[in-house]
């Protein structure tokens, strides 16, 4: 169960505003990514984001570039999950691969206000909204099981490390 406070955005949040290309020369430096996440879209993001932030957005979140620095920047900034009407496909896969939970939740952008508290049950694909207008539950698209395993491992790198070196870590078999 992931719980957090909502920062809400609209449709077509692209990777160039999530982390502008001018910072890509720094590779995947966590400090740089964290500092500049979302700065071209929302200069206040850095001060709004807290350890328990959940981003809620409209359609086509993460469209544009294949840069993995986009989900990494949000993860390093303290975002715990992203719920959107829909995602651009490369961003969706990149987010899972770096261990940042993402889920498609139809109707989420209407049901949730900036600052609402939400609780995400990835296993069951449910989102509980604890908003000003009372509590309600939305149904999202459940993440396929093999992707849940990647998320649970903390991303594709630790997941495959375990697979390639199963003999090194007997208790994860």
């Amino acid at each position: 169960m992931i719980r957090g406070r909502v920062i809400k955005y609209g449709d077509d949040v692209d990777t160039d505003v999530i982390i502008p290309a001018r910072y890509l020369k720094h590779g995947a430096d966590p400090q740089v990514l964290k500092e500049h996440a979302m700065e071209d879209l929302d200069p206040e993001f850095g001060s709004k984001v807290r350890e328990r932030t959940i981003i809620v957005a409209g359609r086509n979140f993460g469209c544009g570039s294949s840069r993995e620095q986009a989900p990494l920047a949000l993860k390093y900034a303290g975002v715990r999950a992203i719920l959107a009407e829909s995602f651009a496909r490369i961003f969706f896969r990149n987010a899972i691969n770096v261990g940042l939970p993402v889920m498609e939740v139809p109707g989420i952008s209407e049901a949730v206000e900036d600052g609402d508290e939400v609780e995400v049950d990835l296993e069951r694909g449910l989102v509980r909204v604890l908003g000003r207008g009372g509590e309600r539950v939305l149904r999202g698209t459940r993440i396929p099981e093999f992707l849940m395993e990647i998320l649970e491992a903390g991303g594709l790198v630790p997941y495959l490390r375990r697979r390639f070196h199963a003999e090194d870590s007997p208790d994860t078999g």
Binding site: R93, N94, N97
Partner: peptide
């Protein structure tokens, strides 16, 4: 198709991708 860096590492390691 375009993919991310970690996905590319997985594809290079496994020789295949989902």
């Amino acid at each position: 198709v375009g993919i991310g860096a970690t996905e590319m590492a997985a594809a290079m390691a496994l020789g295949k991708l989902w």
